[in-house]
Nucleic acid binder design. Structure first.
Lengths: 222, 222
DNA sequence: AAACTATTAGGGGATTTCCCTGATTTTTCC
DNA sequence: GGAAAAATCAGGGAAATCCCCTAATAGTTT
């Protein structure tokens, strides 16, 4: 289940997105709001995977976190495991670049179809980077961007499967392979397989570096 | 070398502190300012260990980060390896508690001597918690506080010596003991000693948990 | 249908860490 | 100056990981 929160100024858009996203069986709708503080409260109390973020919130101009860039930076700094997808009317390249600089993992224009939004959510949830075609077409400096198609880039770090993450979290707690095996009701050999596969996927030297990478990128919580 | 930045409203106090702290041979003076943005710029560009923070900055009343508590919280959230020492005229217990709640590692009253400030900087740099006697005397809820003396509490995490941290950082990079030994021009056995001592000090199960703790608390950078 | 991935599992041997004890020199602190 | 902490080195054995190999099953994607 991918749990989602939507921050958006206009009620009509909020309701539309809510209707569309709640149709997806593997999406868990946490809530929406036009108020950042509601989002922050939700981030503190709920387990949120994806935050959809409108870049310009009209009601926010005079508040301390005055725009989507700062909100995005705040979220990615303070909740490293949460992924932000920018959702905006305006999709000129400097805004796209700014949002990615602020830690966003996706950028979807409001002018594109909602299928792109859903695709983007899944891609970002799986550790990728998503830019929809509308937003990407003016973008020159994203090297992997190819001729106007929506792109999905797999992040170097988050190749890990659900099971692998379970093993990883227990490793970070100092569990030995045999302890992890007992905890997950699998054999020690299987744990070693997961361990090995993760080291390979992440292209690191050993489990020590794997843990260090996983924690510093917020893949697992401590 | 302990690198220090001072945020303080009054120029006279700024200059006084600068003069006193630059006398210490192992202190590296990064700079001072009455403007938070200068501090943030310094945090982004320089390697800063300690931030001295005046709680009430008169010039800051109308700015987005309106007081020392919020600045402190912002720093500790966004720069986990940076340690904040609160420096204030007012030292009633609720302010002390508030500052520690905001992530400060030290609290020094401006009414005490500067030797306490220097002592505090060293204690906090070494991973401890410091409250000068002036600020601590009304404080009931710090369990380890004893009869009006300046206190130094060793943090659970940061017992580590300079050498141990060097070993730790290489461990996080996936270096084996023999690699670390070569890098630091010591024998493998010595590396193992440091490894073992750190695991013991941190009261963790093994090096895996040690790394996970060290990174999530910002003891080492990645 | 074929290709790919996730999850599971095993053997065997090389490498590494872990744990115990013990010791010397240097540095730091009071 | 003397105590304490830090940093250095060592041997030996148990435990764990790492690394090479293979491989079955289930599910998804192309």
């Amino acid at each position: 289940m991918i749990s989602i929160y939507n921050l958006e100024d206009y009620k009509i858009i909020r309701d539309g997105i809510k209707y569309l996203l709640t149709q997806e069986p593997d999406f868990k709708w946490i809530g929406d709001s036009r108020d950042v503080d509601d989002l922050y409260a939700a981030l503190d109390s709920q387990n949120i995977d994806i935050v959809l973020l409108d870049i310009y919130l009209d009601g926010m101009q005079d508040v301390k976190t005055s725009n989507g860039f700062e909100i995005c930076r705040y979220i990615t700094n303070n909740y490293p495991s949460v992924k932000v997808i920018a959702h905006s009317m305006y999709d000129d390249s400097d805004k796209v670049v700014k949002m990615f600089a602020a830690g966003a993992k996706g950028f979807v224009s409001k002018r594109t179809g909602y299928d792109y939004l859903i695709k983007g959510i899944r891609t970002v949830y799986d550790g990728g980077i998503f830019i929809c075609s509308e937003s990407g077409k003016n973008l020159k400096n994203v090297s992997d961007y190819i001729n106007g198609q929506a792109i999905e880039l797999k992040a170097i770090n988050e190749f890990f499967s659900k099971r692998e993450k379970e093993v990883l979290e227990l490793m970070a707690k100092g569990f030995l392979s045999k302890d992890i095996a007992k905890e997950l009701f699998i054999t020690e050999k299987t744990v070693e397989s997961h361990r090995r596969n993760m080291v390979q996927k992440a292209k690191v030297k050993n489990t020590m570096e794997l843990i260090s990478l996983a924690i510093s990128r917020g893949i697992i919580k401590t």
